[in-house]
C-alpha cells in the first residue's frame, strides 16, 4: 500500500499565480553563479588577468616603464629565442630539474622504505621521520644561507674534508653544488608521500608473493613499485614543474653565476625584468616558460584523469 501526500497549494502562489518557468531557471542560475562568484572572481583577478597581461606584454615594446608601448609582433620572441643566454639557461634548468627530480625519487624511496621497515620500532620511526623531514621545513632563504656558510671556502665542509674547494664559486662545480642543495631541500616531500603510499600497500600482496617464492628484490619490482606507480608519476611531474621554476635558492646561493653556469630560466627572466627593466623581453621569457610548464601540467592532468 502506498501513501500519497497531497501538498496543499501555497496561498501566495494562488494569489500571484505560478512564477514563469524561465524566471525560476534564471533564479537558479543566479544562485549558482552567486556561490561560484568568489572563486570565479579570484581566479579571474589572480590568474586570468595576469596571464593575459603578460602574454599581451610579450607582443609589445617598452611596456610598463614607458607610456609609448607599441605592438612589436613576434620580435621579442625572436630576440629571446636567438639569445644564447636563454638556451644556456634552458640547458642548465633541464640538468638541474632532471637530476634533482631523479635523485629526489631515489632518496625519497630509499628513506621511505627504511622508515617503513618492520625492523624499526615505532619511536625510532617517529624520530627518524622528524629528522629526515627537517629540510622540507626550511624556507629557501634559510637553506641558501645555511649552505653558503657550510660550503664557503672557510666553511665546515672544507674543514671536515680538509680541502679548500670553492664549491659554489668554481665554475666547474657550481651547478652540481646548487643541484645538490636542491636535492637536500626537496627529498622529504618524496619521502613523506611515498611512505604514505608504502603503508597503503596491502600486506597480503607481499605475503602472496613470498609464498610464490619471490625474493626481496622481485617483490620490490613486482609488488612495491607497481603499487606506488600512480603516486610516483604524480610526484615526478609535480616536482619537475616546481624544480624547473626554482628561483630563490639559485638567486641566493649563486645569483646565476659564476659567469653563467647556474643561470636558470627563472633567474634569466628576473634579470631581464629587474636588472635590465626590459619587461617586454621578461614577459616573453615568462610566456615561453609557461608553455614549457604547460606541457608538464597537461601530462599531470591527463595522468590524474586516467587515475580517476
Amino acid at each position: 500500500m502506498s501513501l500519497r501526500t497531497v501538498t496543499p497549494p501555497d496561498p501566495q502562489t494562488l494569489l500571484q499565480g505560478a512564477p514563469p518557468r524561465k524566471r525560476r531557471q534564471l533564479r537558479r542560475a543566479g544562485e549558482s553563479y552567486g556561490f561560484l562568484a568568489p572563486t570565479l572572481i579570484l581566479l579571474f583577478v589572480l590568474m586570468i588577468v595576469p596571464i593575459v597581461m603578460v602574454i599581451g606584454y610579450s607582443f609589445q615594446d617598452n611596456v610598463i616603464l614607458k607610456s609609448s608601448s607599441e605592438f612589436a609582433g613576434a620580435d621579442n620572441y625572436v630576440t629571446v629565442l636567438t639569445d644564447p643566454a636563454f638556451w644556456k639557461a634552458t640547458g642548465n634548468t633541464v640538468f638541474f630539474s632532471t637530476v634533482s627530480v631523479a635523485v629526489h625519487l631515489v632518496l625519497g624511496l630509499t628513506f621511505a622504505m627504511l622508515l617503513n621497515s618492520p625492523l624499526i620500532s615505532v619511536t625510532s620511526r617517529a624520530i627518524f621521520r622528524a629528522l629526515y623531514v627537517l629540510p622540507w621545513l626550511f624556507t629557501a632563504a634559510v637553506i641558501a644561507v645555511l649552505w653558503r656558510m657550510l660550503l664557503s671556502p672557510n666553511g665546515i665542509v672544507n674543514f671536515l674534508l680538509n680541502t679548500d674547494v670553492e664549491w659554489l664559486a668554481d665554475p666547474q662545480l657550481a651547478l652540481g653544488t646548487a643541484t645538490f642543495i636542491n636535492i637536500w631541500a626537496g627529498y622529504p616531500f618524496f619521502m613523506v608521500s611515498l611512505l604514505a603510499g608504502l603503508q597503503g600497500i596491502p600486506q597480503d600482496l607481499h605475503e602472496a608473493a613470498s609464498i610464490d617464492g619471490a625474493s626481496q628484490v622481485q617483490r620490490f619490482w613486482n609488488v612495491t613499485i607497481p603499487q606506488l606507480r600512480p603516486i610516483i608519476i604524480s610526484l615526478l611531474l609535480l616536482d619537475l614543474i616546481w624544480t624547473s621554476q626554482q628561483f630563490a635558492l639559485i638567486w641566493l646561493t649563486t645569483g646565476g653565476g659564476p659567469i653563467d653556469v647556474t643561470e636558470m630560466l627563472s633567474t634569466y627572466t628576473y634579470k631581464l625584468a629587474f636588472a635590465n627593466y626590459d619587461f617586454s623581453l621578461a614577459a616573453t621569457a615568462a610566456v615561453l616558460i609557461l608553455l614549457m610548464s604547460l606541457v608538464l601540467a597537461v601530462l599531470y592532468v591527463r595522468h590524474q584523469k586516467a587515475r580517476d
Binding site: Q12, R27, E31, F35, A37, I41, V45
Partner: peptide, 28 residues
Amino acid sequence: MSTHRRTRSRARLLTGIATAASIIALTA
C-alpha cells in the same frame, strides 16, 4: 514549494550575492 523552503532558497541566493559583493568591495 513551501514558503519556508522558498525563504531558505532566497536566503541562499542573497548569501551568495552578498559574498560576491563583499569580495568586489574588498578588492575595490
